[in-house]
Write a protein that binds this DNA or RNA. Structure first.
Lengths: 222, 222
DNA sequence: CAATAATTTAACCAAAAAGTTAATCTTTTT
DNA sequence: AAAAAGATTAACTTTTTGGTTAAATTATTG
């Protein structure tokens, strides 16, 4: 399959958060930023500690306050970045000129690859928006993300190309649920249904590409 | 529909957490327990403050330590309770003697009602297990919950009654994703796709009963 | 009722965590 | 090279938060 080759080639492009690299060519501010991203995504705003972020970045805690005035500040910068990057990545997968149905299939493949490379991001975003829903408003204004466009765009296409009278929002929500839940609920699901076998669960996640495509198609085409 | 009548009649039975009641007939310990449940579910272990729980319970912070030695202790008691209650409720919906397919349909209806009455519970459980996966092990041993039974039970039935060669775990995960995600992602979804209209979103959630049943059936029956 | 036990409170303590500062080291500018 | 600006550190302060205690109040029991 050509597509899976493309997936492999571009796998690291999907990574929103750089893994800690030993080559120290990035600036101090960048190092703080990256460390903060990793810690915040893993532990959330409330669970993260400034000291921990400083340690992760390999430097003094005071520097975090030197570059970003407060934890709140640092978090907001990081969150805004992750949020907009994530949504623009998602939107990016929809900009080819193939049929609507094909586009939907490519979307599912890419979305699973994207989350596989950033398994904590969707849950992180959902949690933080639950914690402080006001953030979402400013996020949508400041970042050019316009996340509502992401799926309504092609779902209008799907809607018109395929005979289906279902509210497209039900399809979006079902689709996202099927894609995100196996990642968000991994520790639970992996233990209960997979005897905590990491490799088997990883395979399971990749199998989902075909499963979800199949499921959505059957539903849309009746 | 008879079923919706039953749903209305038993609506409050689904509620795992009592809303704060003005009638003060419950014991101090119970009041603390209930307040802790509400706060922990809303803010999580890390986000919750002992003072906040004391305020919610309408009493002194020292009392929380008098009845439960530590925050950790209080949290574990509450979490264990919520976890096992939730899973036993879920399992409870599967104990009628109707066909496997019918059982699946009833399950979907009941599950949505259950989460509608406890919208934060699934995400809370997932988050806390992510934070401390060790908890899950002890939870499964101590509480008689055995959550793995919940769906494998009837999915074996479904599997044998209906011709379908799909790994039932894919069906479980898809199903749970479709059911849980609209609740977990509510603030995000409601804002992006529903102009923050609470009533419309509530209706959307109830519509999902038919949508999800439809979707699962189409998938299983091919 | 008196004594004893259980409950409740206000005030306090210690540890953790965010945030600050002044002094030092490094780089850039003149 | 001297001065200035920028980056970095160690040590410190403040605030938050979980936890304690001793005294007061209430309930229970002999």
């Amino acid at each position: 399959m050509v597509h899976s080759i493309i997936c492999v080639l571009f796998a690291d492009i999907n990574r929103l958060v750089k893994p800690k690299s030993k080559s120290m060519d990035s600036s101090t501010e960048e190092k703080i930023y990256d460390a903060a991203r990793r810690i915040f995504i893993l532990k959330g705003m409330e669970g993260a500690r400034m000291q921990e972020i400083a340690d992760e970045a390999g430097m003094n805690k005071a520097l975090l306050h030197y570059y970003f005035r407060s934890k709140e500040n640092l978090f907001k910068a990081v969150f805004k970045d992750i949020f907009s990057k994530f949504f623009s990545r998602v939107r990016g997968t929809l900009n080819s000129n193939i049929t609507a149905k094909e586009k939907l299939m490519v979307f599912i493949d890419n979305y699973i690859d994207l989350i596989a490379a950033n398994p904590y991001v969707p849950q992180f975003i959902i949690n933080e928006i639950n914690r402080d829903p006001k953030m979402l408003k400013s996020m949508m204004l400041e970042s050019g993300a316009e996340p509502q466009m992401v799926l309504s765009m092609f779902l209008n296409e799907v809607q018109s190309n395929i005979s289906s009278k279902i509210d497209p929002r039900h399809i979006v929500v079902s689709l996202l649920g099927m894609l995100i839940f196996p990642f968000a609920g991994r520790p639970l699901l992996q233990m209960i249904y997979f005897n905590n076998d990491v490799e088997v669960y990883d395979r399971f996640l990749m199998e989902r590409k075909e499963i979800v495509k199949n499921m959505i198609l059957k539903f849309i085409e009746g």
